[in-house]
Simulated scan of single mutants.
Amino acid sequence: MYCCQQVLVGKNPGLIPILTFLCEQSHKLTNMGIYYGRQLYFKARIGIGKFDLEKVYKNNYHYKVLYSQAAQQTLRTVAESFRSYYGLIIAYNEGKIEHRPRIPNYRKKGGMATVSYPKQALKLKDNQIRIPLGNTCKRWFGVDSFLIPMPSIRAFSTLKELRILPRNRCFYWEACL
């Protein structure tokens, strides 16, 4: 069974700038991954693998700003969208689908994207989940992590992933079990 619980983040003046920054950096990293995947496909007709983007961007500024596992999740999401596209192209060429699929396109300029943390990156501290930040964020904001209340669904041991979702000028925690 897979379920998610969304919780609206309250108006926390100390936390909102950090969440905004993280989601903006995730957005920029996503666009960089899409750029690389598109260029590789258009110029050499080569597809990207699950870990290719991580190898290319591990020394990039936007990658280093995020916690490493969150940056990896962002780039793997891009790789998954390209794998899906490659599968749809094959299905189109075999006549299984009617309309030609489009290659993944860039996200709008100046936006925010979801930041995902796998359970391995999270820790439970006094019934709150500790979310770590990258080294650059630690220096800029003066904190190494922040805490959110544990969702009411189940125990921490059943948690698989925690996402920060930017929506309608608000932020949501999404705890996936």
Rank of each mutant, 00 (worst) to 15 (best):
Y57V: 03
D52M: 06
P17F: 06
R45Y: 13
E161R: 00
R45I: 00
Q120S: 13
V65D: 02
Y172F: 13
Y172A: 07
L88V: 07
L88A: 08
L133Q: 10
K43P: 12
K58I: 08
T136W: 00
L159V: 01
Y61G: 00
P104A: 07
I129G: 07
T74R: 00
C170G: 00
R76H: 12
T77Y: 01
I18A: 10
S116Q: 09
S145E: 14
Y35K: 11
S84A: 09
G110Y: 05
I129T: 02
L29R: 01
P13S: 05
Y67D: 15
F21W: 08
A71W: 04
F42C: 02
K108R: 11
E161W: 00
T114R: 03
K160V: 04
R45W: 13
A121R: 01
K55R: 15
S152R: 01
Q128T: 06
G110N: 08
H27A: 07
N135V: 11
E24Q: 09
K138Q: 11
N93Q: 15
R107N: 13
L19Y: 04
L147N: 04
C170Y: 13
R167E: 10
R83P: 06
Y172Q: 06
T136L: 06
E161S: 02
R167F: 08
F171Q: 02
G33N: 07
T77S: 08
Y63M: 02
C3K: 06
N60S: 05
R45N: 07
T30L: 00
P101H: 05
L8C: 07
T30D: 00
L22G: 14
K138V: 11
I164K: 01
P118E: 06
C4I: 01
V78M: 03
L147C: 03
I34Y: 02
Q39L: 09
T77E: 09
G134P: 08
N31Q: 05
I48C: 09
N12R: 03
L8Q: 10
N127P: 10
A155Y: 06
G142W: 05
Q73A: 15
Q6H: 12
I153E: 14
A113E: 14
Y2M: 13
I97G: 13
P101C: 09
S81E: 10
F146A: 11
Y92L: 12
K96S: 12
G47F: 10
L124T: 01
H99K: 15
L177W: 14
N12F: 08
H62F: 14
E80L: 09
G14M: 03
K50D: 01
K64E: 15
I89L: 15
K58M: 07
A70M: 02
G14F: 05
F42L: 07
L75T: 01
